Simulated scan of single mutants.
Amino acid sequence: MTPAPTSTTDRVSTRVSIALLGVRSDAPVRRTGGAGPSDDGHFVIDGAGAAIPLNLASPYVVNARGRLTLDGADLGFDVSPVTRPRFYDLQTSEGVAYDKIAKLHGKNVLATTVVQTCVRYDESERCRFCAIEASLDAGTTIAVKTPAMLAEVAEAAVRLDGVTNMVMTTGTSNGWDRGAKHLARCVRAVKKAVPSLEIQVQCEPPADLQAITDLYEAGARSIGIHVESMDDAVRARWMPGKSRVSMDEYRASWREAVRVFGWNQVSTYLLVGLGEDPDELVAGAAELIEMGVYPFIVPFRPLKGTLATDVDRVPAPDRRILNSVTARVATLLQAAGMRGEDQRAGCAACGACSALQTAGA
């Protein structure tokens, strides 16, 4: 007998717990290394995509009937692993495997890092949670994805696997655009090949805000300008290079992005677990919401190959803090009528790395 669904509060608490403790399960689609939350398996939980750490020591188990259990008790969640996409079996005419060009994220999102290197990757400059070049060193990706490559892979992913939207991010370049120019070229090529595919782009605030309009005119319809923390002391400690891009520059970029892309088509990651005061983090989220920017609340995830894990030994955040911050920000988002699933494409639209959608936001 299937148990009755638990309350929203209980469901959010469980979703937060598995985001931190992971699950015992197999997952054909998984990520290791990279620039964002990684070392996870991709699942569909009650119809929604979820990126969950794979942890053989986790008390949470996906049983043979596809139910999430804790100490044998059914928690009321249907869980199924995302199946390996068919486009992973293909390669370009030059012999580059498609899965080195773009990956399936969640259940229906195609994701790529168009430039897998970052000008800030020296240890003195690097974001301590980032391993953008680790997958390059491991040979699981290539340094630069060309517009033609991405168009080819996107067409196949849509045709063979039903991908509905795409995320394009990039390592930061030395130029005034900080990587936006190559992103725009890639967006334009993909939209020409697959006009129906919605695309989110992600980049640092460009020195010239015209780059934001250029990305929209290329065909992107959502944008992520990710700050990770709005606390300058936290930024200096965790992101020594990136923190030199001031909060004033971020705010100017967010406002311009909202003007160009529209309300709730702009987002930014806020990471829980970097040492920021939870009340200040929630206050920062409220400021973003007032601007029309969706604050995507995600836990810091320990990841091999990052300075935070290999050198600093920083653990995952306290479950109670993540649960509280998620619930409080979800309440603010609900009051504003702002939902991640209303974004045209991207991380907030997918929601797999956060518990916000489980909380109704």
Rank of each mutant, 00 (worst) to 15 (best):
K107G: 03
T2W: 10
M230I: 14
V167M: 10
Y98K: 05
E204R: 11
C127P: 03
A27I: 04
D232A: 13
E198D: 13
R128K: 14
L54E: 03
A4D: 07
V114A: 11
Q265H: 07
L197H: 01
R126K: 09
G305C: 08
T164R: 14
G305T: 09
G34T: 03
T146A: 01
A154R: 10
D71N: 12
R84C: 05
A19Q: 07
C203F: 15
G179Y: 02
L288Y: 04
V96Y: 01
G275H: 08
D78R: 15
G66I: 10
G292D: 09
V153Y: 08
Y121C: 04
G224I: 15
V187D: 03
C347M: 12
V245T: 09
G162L: 09
S354W: 01
V29N: 03
L333A: 07
W238C: 05
G262M: 06
L197E: 04
V258K: 04
G340E: 06
S7A: 05
G41A: 01
E152Y: 01
V82H: 15
T331K: 14
L68V: 12
C130S: 08
K304N: 01
A143S: 12
G292A: 09
I142R: 04
S135M: 03
E125N: 11
D26A: 03
A50L: 04
D10K: 02
G262K: 05
G340A: 06
P28F: 05
S267G: 00
S80M: 13
R237F: 10
D40E: 03
A207C: 13
K191P: 10
E228H: 02
Y294K: 02
V158R: 02
G340Y: 05
V23M: 00
A359G: 03
A285M: 11
A286Q: 06
D10Y: 01
D214H: 15
L215Y: 12
Q202T: 15
A50N: 04
Q116V: 05
V144M: 07
R328N: 15
K107C: 02
D248T: 06
Q116E: 05
R319A: 11
P295N: 07
L70R: 14
G179D: 03
A355F: 13
S124I: 12
M338H: 15
P53T: 07
K304P: 00
G36N: 05
R185D: 09
G36C: 02
Y269A: 00
D137Y: 01
N55Y: 07
P299C: 01
L160C: 02
V298W: 08
P85Y: 03
Y121W: 13
A359Q: 04
D74W: 14
R251K: 09
V201H: 05
R313Y: 14
L356P: 10
K242W: 12
D312V: 09
T268E: 00
G41C: 01
T326I: 10
I225A: 08
S25R: 04
V234N: 11
T170R: 00
L197S: 02
